[in-house]
Simulated assay, not measured.
Amino acid sequence: MALLEVKNLGISFGGLRAVNEFHLHIEKGCLYGLIGPNGAGKTTVFNLLTGVYRPNEGIITLDGEPIIGKKTIEINKAGIARTFQNIRLFKDLTVLDNVKAGLHNHCKYSTVEGILRLPRYFKVEKEMDEKAMELLKVFDLDQEARTLASNLPYGKQRKLEITRALATKPKLLLLDEPAAGMNPNETKELMETIRFVRDTFDMTILLIEHDMKLVSGICEELTVLNFGQVLAEGKTGDVLNNPEVIKAYLGE
């Protein structure tokens, strides 16, 4: 059974058909890419998968369970986490506190326990500190745990955003243009990080990306979206050599 199954997904905005009859099948453990020209509907698909938008029609199942109609936080708890093209960290918080924000989905105390600083509050906070530090150590960010997120270099901010997403314990990680704004060295390190995340956390990853070197270097399968519809899908090498894809997307 596929981890993510999408069938006949569609949505319109004011008469404009943004996504039409979109389908996607991603097996557990796959590193999958969603590519296409600007305005093709890729981010709209991510917003549909995460509950930001509700489709006009179609089916989305995660691990066999339907998720359409659920709120964004409910979908996150069900197992989908995402990053954004424009990094959305809590930049006035420390690196540690950013990761703890992701842990709050699973480690909780009541409002009263927090306000009154009851024993459970300290117990849960200690557990979150330990779990956050474990994650930061995995990504070599533990030495900067007390640093403000805004003071990290760009590449490390991107890595922190991925770490925070992993703190929510997802089954499926969505990466929205993770290489945006990166130099070649940062992109190379990012590729290693994504492979590391998939292998270490047994993670399934779906990413949107325009950097074809990154896409061809790490994605096992691709779907190409054009004008809101699937243009091609399959093994990465086959898709990137598809004449229709070259014409529509690569401009060659």
Rank of each mutant, 00 (worst) to 15 (best):
240 L>A: 06
119 P>C: 01
102 G>P: 03
219 C>W: 11
7 K>H: 04
208 I>V: 12
46 F>C: 06
54 R>Y: 00
6 V>K: 05
33 G>V: 13
44 T>V: 03
40 A>L: 10
167 A>E: 06
239 V>F: 07
182 M>R: 04
224 V>P: 06
43 T>I: 03
129 D>Q: 12
75 I>H: 02
41 G>I: 02
138 V>P: 06
201 F>H: 11
139 F>M: 09
150 S>A: 15
216 S>W: 00
151 N>K: 11
105 N>G: 12
112 V>G: 11
122 F>C: 06
118 L>H: 07
108 K>L: 05
113 E>R: 06
84 F>C: 05
147 T>A: 13
10 G>R: 05
23 H>Q: 11
145 A>Q: 11
195 R>K: 14
153 P>E: 05
74 E>W: 12
60 I>V: 09
209 E>H: 05
40 A>S: 15
172 L>A: 09
45 V>C: 00
137 K>S: 14
228 G>I: 01
86 N>K: 08
32 Y>D: 12
135 L>K: 05
195 R>N: 13
137 K>C: 10
7 K>V: 00
128 M>S: 09
173 L>N: 10
94 T>G: 10
248 A>T: 08
7 K>Y: 00
87 I>A: 05
223 T>W: 11
154 Y>F: 15
7 K>L: 04
42 K>V: 02
223 T>R: 13
58 G>N: 10
9 L>T: 04
233 E>R: 14
28 K>D: 11
179 A>E: 03
34 L>C: 00
227 F>S: 09
130 E>M: 13
20 N>D: 15
136 L>D: 05
97 D>W: 09
154 Y>L: 08
157 Q>L: 00
160 L>D: 07
88 R>N: 06
190 L>Q: 04
246 I>T: 03
159 K>T: 13
247 K>I: 08
226 N>D: 15
249 Y>W: 07
61 T>M: 02
16 L>E: 03
233 E>K: 14
91 K>M: 13
74 E>C: 12
173 L>F: 04
83 T>S: 10
99 V>A: 04
213 K>A: 09
11 I>M: 02
24 L>G: 11
85 Q>S: 10
76 N>A: 15
247 K>Q: 14
179 A>T: 05
30 C>N: 14
116 L>M: 15
205 I>H: 02
160 L>K: 11
46 F>M: 01
59 I>T: 14
96 L>R: 10
91 K>H: 13
208 I>N: 08
90 F>S: 11
77 K>C: 12
158 R>G: 01
251 G>P: 13
217 G>M: 12
213 K>Y: 10
188 K>T: 14
90 F>L: 15
162 I>W: 08
69 G>D: 00
26 I>Y: 09
160 L>E: 07
117 R>T: 09
20 N>P: 07
193 T>Q: 01
73 I>K: 13
107 C>P: 05
209 E>P: 10
199 D>M: 10
44 T>L: 07
56 N>D: 15
39 G>V: 02
226 N>Y: 15
29 G>R: 10
140 D>W: 12
212 M>I: 04
27 E>Y: 03
138 V>S: 12
25 H>V: 08
